[in-house]
């Protein structure tokens, strides 16, 4: 009995060290915060259009459990955001090659700057919502730019990525999910 008591500190340490090892070897990047919205329907927020010739979007533009629609990617971007520029070619390619609609959510931006940005880099978005005050992005739970959400046919958010998209991530995380959603639908 007494001996076991003396083994206790060692035992506790092994458990703690095990957690550390697990975190180091398999753990997520501690900075990435999983979205609370995964599995939930998209927010109700209505977003006015950025461009005169392209609509904004709101709850009705996504499917719902009663009326399923095609899955959608929502890409949060801004002209002041450097990483957004870096990921833009990949977003464009996704929209073209995977025949999935991508909605743009332009946040905390100046309308003219955003329009210029899209003119220079190309506009792959099917619809673009404009949120100059940055209020709607709070409903989406955005905390960094860019962010990308995958919404399924029933209008539920199934995946979120914070930070720029890049080929490896698209290949690993995004495409399998998009294809699975399309297979279902």
């Amino acid at each position: 009995m007494k001996r076991i008591l003396f083994l206790l500190p060692l035992g506790l340490f092994i458990i703690v060290a095990g957690y550390f090892a697990w975190q180091l070897l398999y753990g997520r990047d501690p900075r990435i915060i999983p979205s609370a919205l995964i599995g939930n329907p998209v927010p109700e927020t209505e977003l006015p259009p950025l461009k005169d010739d392209k609509p904004g979007f709101g709850r009705a533009d996504f499917g719902s459990p009663d009326a399923e629609k095609a899955p959608v990617l929502v890409n949060v971007f801004a002209s002041w955001c450097g990483p957004c520029r870096a990921e833009h070619p990949f977003v464009t390619a996704l929209a073209k090659q995977e025949s999935i609609e991508v909605y743009g959510l332009n946040a905390k931006d100046n309308r003219q700057a955003a329009l210029d940005w899209l003119r220079d880099l190309g506009d792959p978005y099917a619809k673009i919502g404009f949120d100059p005050q940055g209020k709607a992005v709070l409903d989406w739970g955005v905390y960094g730019y860019p962010e990308t959400y995958l919404v399924n046919g029933r209008g539920e958010i199934v995946f979120k990525h914070v930070g720029p998209l890049y080929p490896d991530l698209i290949e690993r995380e995004l495409l399998p999910r998009i294809r699975a959603l399309k297979g279902e639908g």
Binding site: F6, P9, L10, F13
Partner: peptide, 25 residues
């Protein structure tokens, strides 16, 4: 670096606590 330090921890703390469990009684 994290893994290297963790190994150092395991050896120094784990080792000393093992010694403790063995000798302290």
């Amino acid at each position: 670096r994290g893994i290297f330090i963790l190994l150092l921890l395991a050896i120094s703390i784990g080792g000393s606590l093992a010694l403790y469990a063995w000798r302290a009684p």
